[in-house]
Nucleic acid binder design. Structure first.
Length: 242
DNA sequence: TCTTTAGCATAATGCGAGAA
DNA sequence: TTCTCGCATTATGCTAAAGA
């Protein structure tokens, strides 16, 4: 049975292409984690799609390679978002945000993640092309419909920069704003800055796991974990001024 | 050391052909 | 029309190895 090139793509392959394009780029490990398959399987499917030019493979860092949707892949899935341009300066940040998104989606079954690319596209449609306002790194839409803006902090913001971001969020309808830090020190600094904003939650993303900033709860949702949501739906009815 | 690929074996699935 | 069978293809897991 000889199949045509189009039939190479299974429905899951198309989902993989869509997901990669929504985030811009993903590693094989992230694709495996997002779809609950082994990395071996992910590598094989990704390789097939690269061979068929649905995906492009790049290895811009010394670490894991990344996969980007090719023009052919975008056409195959009728992608709403255009081609992604890799920027080395933001690549690490992009991949970290994807890691956080995958963990949070496991932590909150039924939740939906809106990527920064989708948020920018939406903002562009609403405010016009070229709009340069602030959008979060991602939006976690919890099963109850509450929207949580998620910010991944690569570097520690200055007080002025943090204040500017918070003034923006005070004008939005997000239920909460979650800042994900790379280190405990960074989290402590942010906690100090966010002390007067009761809608802010500080998390720490360390060694592939998510923790509450007080270190008491491990939010990591490893494939073998079965964490309960325990009624934690983001908490507030809307962002309120301190 | 880590990422990635390749080969092999096995199970699952899809499809067409033929029989009841 | 439905069921069964055989074949081809695909998905998956395992191990080994190449390469940066």
């Amino acid at each position: 049975m000889v199949r045509g090139v189009e039939s190479l793509l299974t429905e899951r392959d198309k989902e993989i292409i869509r997901l990669i394009n929504r985030f811009g780029c993903l590693t094989a490990a992230q694709v495996a984690a997002a779809f609950g398959m082994s990395e071996r399987v992910a590598y094989r499917r990704l390789q097939k799609m690269v061979e068929a030019r649905y995906l492009k493979y790049r290895r811009p860092l010394s670490g894991a390679g990344i996969y980007i949707a090719g023009v052919r892949g975008l056409e195959a899935v009728d992608a709403e978002l255009g081609r992604f341009q890799v920027h080395l300066a933001t690549l690490e940040h992009n991949l970290a945000v994807a890691d956080v998104a995958i963990l949070l989606l496991r932590r909150y079954p039924g939740a939906r993640w809106v990527t920064e690319r989708e948020l920018r596209r939406e903002a562009g449609q609403r405010f016009g092309v070229g709009w340069q306002g602030h959008v979060p790194d991602g939006l976690l839409v919890l099963p109850g419909g509450r929207e949580v803006a998620v910010e991944y902090e690569n570097t520690t913001k200055s007080r002025a920069a943090f204040g500017k971001v918070m003034r923006h969020y005070l004008r939005t309808d997000y239920a909460q704003v979650w800042f994900v830090c790379r280190t405990r020190r960074q989290a402590d600094r942010l906690k100090e800055l966010a002390r007067s904003y009761d809608f802010v939650r500080i998390l720490i993303f360390e060694r592939g796991m998510l923790y509450e900033s007080d270190g008491r709860e491990n939010l990591c949702a490893h494939p073998s974990d079965h964490l309960s949501v325990s009624g934690d739906d983001g908490g507030r009815s809307g962002v309120q001024a301190p």
